[in-house]
Design a protein around this nucleic acid. Sequence first.
RNA 1: GCCGAGGUAGCUCAGUGGUAGAGCGCGGCCCUGAAAAGGCCGGCGUGGGGGGUCCGAUUCCCUCCCUCGGCA
Length: 298
Amino acid sequence: MSIAVKKKIIFLVGPTAAGKSEIAVRLARKINAEIISCDSMQIYKGMDILTAKPALALLRKIPHHLIGMIDPSKEYNVSRYRRDALRIIKEIFKKNKTPLFVGGTGLYMSILLDGIFKAKGESKKIRKQLFEEAKRITSPELHDRLKKIDPQAAEKIHPNDTRRIVRALEVFLVTGKPISVLQKERIGLADEYDVEVYCLSMPLDKLYEKINKRVDKMFKLGLVNEVKKLLKKKLSKTAQFAIGIRELKGYFDGDCSLEQVKEMIKYNSRQYARRQLTWFRKDKRIKWVEADAITQKG
RNA sequence: GCCGAGGUAGCUCAGUGGUAGAGCGCGGCCCUGAAAAGGCCGGCGUGGGGGGUCCGAUUCCCUCCCUCGGCA
């Protein structure tokens, strides 16, 4: 008789600029892993400097997946990410290696660990109509409507959070079921595998310093040209919001100086890092690792 | 040295005889098909130091210190 041993999957997450890429490669070598990016923006092609993709030297040492594989004009989202990631996990297991997820996108991590609800309940048409309606009336009024069909979801969503209100209404209109009910059914990796989650930590002021320095470095590496190239195409709803694009667009349009853009990118990156940390703090499965104590682990 | 203006939150500055606000910054939180997005919340303060008037001073008076302009 045999005891079913759960296979191991490791996550290494952390705020932007914490130094995940280097540590991930070291760890991957040690435990015979392949790396799967858990990053909503590094997935896109041609956004190398902008998203601080791992250096070529690192990419050569260990196979990396889900980096630079989608054209920035294409839509991509959590659901597709999950589908792609699950596929790659299987491939890696076939090679008798361990999947190592590395990145900072909290939602992607959460959807992987805990799953996403099955019914996709997606209709671009309906969504578009709802957004247009939200402009015509107000977000709280739309929220009132949600309250009638799905009070539980309405309670969770703030009246000003138009996006989530629209999404909840969309799901109901498409599937006929309240999103709050659908959301209860989800199965994730944490249910089937032996999952370990690590998060890099460091004092905020130190992280801010690293972020600021990295933004300076991005400019030296040619961020302005990279973004200029990107802006020649119509960027997808998702890709266009990578930090740095909107800011530099302001510069190209003559609305602000390059120095101002640089400060805005730093600022927005800092805010983003804080939001990331909020996400990670909430997840009690996470083991926190001092970024300085990078030496032994795994 | 004299004259004038001013010293209030991390910064720029309002305001009031009943122990203080605003913007920016900063911090916390939420998150299930756009997530580097989107949304919510929080004042974080020895009111330059000391003295006086007053029931009560950040506000009025005196004095000292500091900053900025002008005159020497």
